[in-house]
Amino acid sequence: MSLMELRRVWGTRPLIGAAVGVLLQDESGRVLLQRRGDDGLWSEPGGALEPGEDFLTGARRELLEETGLTCPTLRLLPLPGGLQSGPELYHRYPHGDELYIVGMRAHGTLPAEALNGAQPDDSGETLELRWFALDDLPMLSNNANRQSMSLLRSWAGLPPLPLHPTPPPPPPGNFLLDLRKVIGHRPWFAPGANVLVTDEAGRILLLRCGHTGRWTLPGGNLEPGESFAETAARELLEETGLTAARLDPLEMFAGPEYRFTSPNGDVVDYVSVLYRAHSVTGTLTPQPGEVLEVGWFGVDELPDDADLSGALIQANLRYWKKLRSQPNS
C-alpha cells in the first residue's frame, strides 16, 4: 500500500513518516537547498523511505530524484545529531495531511560547480536548486529543515534557528494497532527503540515476549509525536518497571535485513534506535501479558538465535557483544 492509497482511507490524521534528509555542502560551507513544489519554500533534499529501504540508500535515491546529483562522500551522520524525531517535527502539508517526521540525516560535500549538472526529475517536487550561506538562509519549509540547518550552523559556530510552534501530539494510544486495521498485514515501517540494561555483573536483561514466546530487549514502537528517546524510556518503564537516569543512543538499525513477520502475519520494517541505559533504578516488574519472564544473561549465556525475536534483536545483541569487547565499555 502506498502512502497515497493509505491517505484515502486514513484521511489527514497524523502519520509517522520514516524519512531521510540530505545535507550537502560545497567547498565554502554553503548548503544546497531545493525550493519545494508543494509550498514554494526551501528545504534540504530528502523524503520518505520506501519499504525495505535503509537510510543511506534512501538518501542517495532522494538526492538523485530531486536534484539529478550523486555524492560519493554521502554518509549518515552519527547519533545523536543524525537522528530526527520528536513533537517539534510535526508538519502539516498544504492539502491538510499531517505527519510526524522521524529518521536520519545524511551529509556529504560537492564542489559548487556540481550544481551546473543538476537535473531534477519531472515530478514537480523541486522548483529550484541553490547554494546558500548558513548565515543567509531563505524561508524554510518546516522544523525538520530548521533543525538540520541548526546542526550545520553549530559546526560553523552560529546560533540555532528558532523552531515554529507545533500543536500538542495526539493522546497516547496504540498507533500501529490502529494503522493495522487499515493496512492489514502489508509491510509498513515501525519506528521504535530498544534498550540495553546490564547489571553489576555485566549481564544483559532480556524479556520473553508474550506475543512471540521469544527473547527480546525492552523496547517498542513510537507513538505520533514521540522521540526515539521518549519511546525508549516509556517502554523500559512499562515492560520492566525500571527507570534510567540517562539513555545514550548507540546505533540506528534499519533496512531490508530487519523486516519481521509477526505470528499473526503482520509484516514490519523496523527502524529502531538502540539505547544504553545508565544508573537504572526501580524494582524489576514484568508487564503482565506482554512479558512472560525475564532473565539476566552473560555474553556466553545468550539464547540461540532461533530463540530470539528476529534479526533486529540478534543484531542488537551482536552490537552489545562488540561493545563489551571495547576498552572502557
Results as ranks from 00 to 15, higher is better:
169 P>I: 10
175 F>G: 01
103 G>F: 03
56 L>F: 05
260 F>H: 15
262 S>E: 15
127 L>N: 05
242 L>C: 12
223 E>I: 04
122 D>E: 15
244 A>Y: 02
275 Y>G: 01
76 L>V: 06
212 T>V: 02
229 A>K: 06
149 M>N: 00
182 V>R: 15
321 K>Q: 15
120 P>V: 03
158 L>I: 09
132 F>G: 00
166 T>Y: 06
104 M>R: 12
169 P>N: 06
103 G>K: 00
258 Y>A: 03
218 P>R: 02
35 R>K: 14
81 G>R: 14
234 R>W: 12
217 L>K: 05
209 C>Y: 09
206 L>E: 00
216 T>C: 06
35 R>E: 11
242 L>P: 04
115 L>E: 07
249 P>I: 01
222 L>C: 08
95 H>Y: 12
229 A>M: 09
212 T>G: 07
233 A>Q: 07
6 L>F: 03
140 L>E: 04
18 A>S: 14
289 G>W: 12
114 A>E: 09
245 A>K: 13
21 G>D: 07
138 P>I: 08
233 A>I: 02
206 L>S: 01
279 S>R: 15
241 G>W: 03
222 L>K: 02
85 S>H: 07
125 E>L: 15
327 P>W: 06
132 F>I: 09
70 T>D: 14
115 L>Q: 10
137 L>R: 08
106 A>Y: 01
312 L>M: 11
263 P>E: 07
192 G>M: 05
87 P>H: 11
242 L>I: 11
238 E>Y: 08
216 T>M: 03
259 R>N: 13
278 H>M: 07
65 E>D: 11
151 L>C: 00
256 P>M: 02
3 L>G: 15
139 M>I: 14
45 P>D: 09
82 G>L: 01
317 L>G: 05
129 L>F: 07
106 A>G: 08
49 L>D: 02
218 P>T: 06
283 T>A: 14
13 R>S: 13
126 T>W: 04
316 N>E: 15
13 R>G: 12
161 L>M: 03
153 R>C: 07
63 L>T: 07
131 W>S: 07
179 L>P: 02
269 D>H: 13
96 G>S: 05
294 V>F: 01
266 D>V: 12
78 P>T: 06
156 A>N: 08
87 P>K: 01
145 N>P: 00
194 N>D: 14
114 A>N: 02
318 R>G: 10
235 E>K: 08
169 P>D: 11
281 T>K: 11
304 D>P: 03
41 L>K: 10
140 L>T: 04
222 L>R: 02
303 P>E: 04
175 F>P: 01
7 R>K: 09
262 S>M: 14
93 Y>M: 11
149 M>P: 00
260 F>E: 15
135 D>S: 09
268 V>R: 10
84 Q>I: 15
272 S>V: 10
326 Q>P: 00
12 T>H: 13
188 W>V: 13
24 L>K: 07
324 R>Q: 15
136 D>G: 11
241 G>T: 09
172 P>I: 11
25 Q>D: 04
251 E>S: 09
109 T>A: 12
80 P>A: 06
152 L>S: 08
14 P>K: 07
59 A>N: 00
98 E>R: 14
259 R>Y: 04
171 P>C: 09
311 A>W: 04
100 Y>A: 01
156 A>I: 06
